[in-house]
């Protein structure tokens, strides 16, 4: 089936099998920053913004993305500059192995769109669909709040 998507700002047309998962489609375009960490929609490593809303792309079919705008980690940078969430993850040591990081950052970026000044509980709640096996989350929370500061300063 033919699908039309806007992937990180670029229009694409591709032919996909209906059963192809959105995550496989995205990774197949070379955007391998979107990861797969589980079989049961539990980990959020595959999280991508679909029309601005975080979705687990292992639990959507690529055909369902037609007409939608997708933002993956590769699309976070704007005009060559890191998105505040990216800068903040580095600054606050919000990542270790980096495998959960793209999903975490996208979920967090969506949270900050809604609420640029989240409390610790707000952040912990918002990222509770994304698992991290390395960090213990404390620094992720700090990173998200720091990104909020960076956003509010601008």
């Amino acid at each position: 089936m033919e699908i039309n998507v806007t992937l990180n700002g670029t229009q694409r047309t591709d032919d996909v099998e209906p059963r192809q998962l959105l995550v496989d489609y995205i990774r197949g375009t070379g955007n391998t920053g979107t990861h797969i960490g589980c079989d049961t929609t539990s980990c959020g490593a595959c999280t991508v913004l679909v029309d601005g809303t975080p979705m687990k792309t292992c639990t959507m079919f690529a055909v369902q993305a037609t007409g939608k705008s997708l933002t993956t980690v590769e699309g976070l940078k704007q005009n060559g500059a890191l998105h505040p969430i990216q800068a903040a993850f580095k600054e606050k040591h919000g990542l270790q192995c980096g495998f959960c990081t793209p999903g975490m950052m996208l979920t967090s970026a969506a949270l900050l769109e809604e609420n640029p000044d989240p409390s610790e509980d707000d952040v912990r709640w918002a990222i509770s669909g994304n698992l991290c096996r390395c960090t213990g989350y404390v620094n992720i929370v700090k990173a998200v709040q720091h990104a909020g500061e960076l956003i509010r300063e601008n």
């Binding site: 920053g33 990861h35 590769e74 976070l76 993850f89 580095k90 495998f99 990081t101």
Partner: peptide
């Protein structure tokens, strides 16, 4: 601050998959 983070935060890590 970690040197490796630059690639990870941009989705440019290179894992086996």
């Amino acid at each position: 601050r970690r040197h490796e983070d630059d690639r990870f935060i941009q989705g440019a890590g290179n894992y086996v998959d």
